[in-house]
């Protein structure tokens, strides 16, 4: 990471940290929403952006996490934030079960199957499956989370909670992208068959992409449940999955892009509030226009450069720190 990059990251962090001081509770809440969608979209980005798997059912995993949290909290009195890992695990387990048989499906067939999964989950929630989900009413009365004895209730509290979580997620996913795992996913995205041929166990990697994305989405479900204090099936409709899908593609698949995408797709409709009835019209048009002007997304991943070890550098005969080789990145 270059110095300028570090400073820019630090700059963004400072802006994010002082922002709520300038915002009224309404805009703070909008930014909480943006933060939540950012994390969800980051977790979808592993599956859709990194591995290139057409997945339009991410709300299903998110729902599993939120419901596990809500049930654990309202029935057994588990503190909300304690439920977070369990929510993640439940979502991951669910993803493993449903993704396993469908992982070999290609492109659009996978797309419709994931839509099918999110619809089945929603219908199951509405029909009060196992008598736990409260049907169409959903679950209400989820308690506010406490962190080290501090009760998180106001929009500004949630703002810091959510954006701290966003920061953790960004750091983690950055590491992941550059890991062996992340590079394998990129290989699969670029050329599935070649990856298989080079000894990458594609089915296994794809499945783990799903599991990991679902784990993170499930944990985000916890925060959503804590924020809303009431969750109902309509919060996890197919439409939510579509929005997340659009965030990732519009953003371009890089972590920065995903954050920008979340800001545009979740924040923009709020700017259009002045248009009242016409606000969704303007929103739809904006989506088309943005795609046309940036077909590759707002901020696609930059080509990655890796410093080669000293001895290889000697062989290539180039001098200085500028010598670099491009490995597995995309333009």
């Amino acid at each position: 990471m270059t110095v300028s990059r570090t400073t820019s990251y630090a700059g963004i962090a400072v802006v994010v940290a002082v922002l709520p001081l300038l915002l009224d509770p309404y805009w703070t809440d909008v930014f909480v929403s943006i933060g939540l969608y950012s994390v969800l979209a980051l977790s979808l980005n592993i599956i859709l952006g990194q591995a290139g798997l057409f997945h339009m059912g991410h709300a299903a995993f998110y729902a599993v996490g939120a419901y596990v949290t809500a049930i654990a909290n309202t029935m057994w009195g588990v503190p909300v934030l304690w439920a977070m890992p369990f929510a993640g695990l439940a979502a991951a387990l669910f993803a493993m079960l449903v993704a396993r048989p469908i992982i070999h499906l290609r492109g659009d067939y996978l797309l419709i199957v994931t839509i099918g999964i999110v619809e089945i989950v929603r219908i199951a929630l509405i029909n009060n499956v196992f008598g736990l989900t409260g049907g169409a009413n959903g679950i209400f009365g989820i308690s506010r989370p406490t962190l080290f004895g501090f009760k998180i209730a106001k929009p500004v509290h949630f703002y810091y909670l959510v954006w701290a979580y966003v920061a953790c997620s960004v750091l983690l996913f950055r590491r992941l992208e550059n890991s062996r795992f992340g590079r394998a996913l990129n290989y699969i995205k670029e050329d599935d068959t070649a990856a298989e041929g080079s000894g990458v166990n594609t089915a296994s990697y794809k499945l783990w992409a799903f599991v990991l994305g679902a784990f993170w989405a499930g944990m985000t479900g916890t925060i959503y449940a804590a924020k809303m204090t009431i969750i109902s099936p309509e919060s996890f409709s197919f439409w939510e999955s579509v929005v997340l899908f659009a965030i990732v593609i519009l953003g371009g698949g890089s972590n920065r892009g995903v954050l920008l995408g979340a800001f545009l797709l979740i924040g923009l409709p709020e700017f259009f509030r002045e248009f009242a009835s016409a606000r969704m019209l303007a929103f739809g048009l904006a989506m088309v226009v943005m795609m046309i002007f940036r077909p590759q997304g707002m901020l696609p991943p930059m080509p990655r450069f890796y410093k080669l070890p000293e001895r290889i550098r000697c062989v290539t005969g180039k001098d200085g720190g500028a010598a670099a080789a491009q490995v597995g990145g995309e333009a």
Binding site: I249, L285, M287, M291, I292
Partner: peptide, 13 residues
């Protein structure tokens, strides 16, 4: 996928 997002936007429009 870019075209898919454009299609979704057109649908909302």
């Amino acid at each position: 996928l870019s075209a898919v997002v454009s299609a979704l936007g057109a649908s909302i429009f």
